[in-house]
Amino acid sequence: MINDDPGACDLVAIALRSFREAILPVIPADQRFTALMIANALGMAERELAAGASDEPALAAAVGTLLGEQGDLPALLPRLCTAIDAGHFDAPDRQAALRAVLADITRARLAVSNPKRLASERQEHGR
């Protein structure tokens, strides 16, 4: 059976649109900052849900390759931190590989938390 009900991403998008169109314009000035924070949080949730876990398998594979391990991203990231702290990436060739993976992780996080910054970064570097 096909489920035609809106999913979580759709529900957050509807809530955000409604909030921006119907509520935000009538918020008193002294509560505007809080209201904008709520809109921003809903926007981040919408982007995270829309992205789903699409980047996670590739990022987990990249981190796993660095560590010589397999697993999901939430399990591998603490291990990566421990390996960095232990000096496993101090050699120049290991540093380059680490930097590339960290840049990919940062871009994936920016796509959710601050896509405008990510877009400006791409424009600055011609990507």
Rank of each mutant, 00 (worst) to 15 (best):
M1D: 14
M1W: 09
M1C: 06
I2C: 01
I2S: 11
I2T: 12
N3H: 13
D4E: 15
D5W: 15
G7E: 14
C9A: 12
I14G: 05
A15K: 03
A15V: 09
A15N: 09
S18F: 13
S18D: 15
F19P: 00
E21R: 08
I23H: 07
I23Q: 03
L24Y: 03
P25S: 01
P25G: 00
P28W: 05
P28D: 14
A29Q: 12
D30H: 12
D30G: 00
Q31R: 15
A35K: 10
A35T: 09
L36P: 05
M37R: 13
I38T: 12
L42N: 04
G43W: 15
A45T: 13
E48R: 13
A51G: 05
D55C: 00
P57C: 08
P57R: 12
P57W: 15
P57V: 10
P57Q: 13
A58L: 04
A61Q: 11
A61L: 07
G64D: 04
T65H: 11
T65P: 05
L66D: 05
G68I: 04
G68K: 12
Q70A: 09
Q70R: 14
G71L: 02
G71C: 03
G71E: 06
P74I: 02
P74V: 00
P74K: 01
L76Y: 01
L76S: 04
L76G: 04
L77S: 02
L77M: 08
R79D: 03
L80D: 00
L80G: 00
L80E: 02
L80I: 03
T82Q: 14
D85Y: 08
A86W: 05
G87Q: 07
H88R: 15
H88E: 15
F89S: 01
D90K: 10
A91K: 15
P92I: 00
D93Y: 06
D93P: 08
R94N: 10
Q95K: 10
Q95C: 01
A100P: 09
A100L: 09
A103T: 14
A103H: 10
A103I: 11
I105L: 13
T106C: 07
R107V: 04
R107M: 06
R107L: 04
R107F: 09
R107N: 08
R107S: 03
A108S: 11
R109A: 09
L110Q: 11
A111V: 06
A111L: 07
A111G: 06
V112E: 07
V112W: 07
K116D: 15
R117P: 01
L118T: 06
A119D: 15
S120Q: 14
Q123S: 09
G126C: 05
G126L: 10
R127V: 11
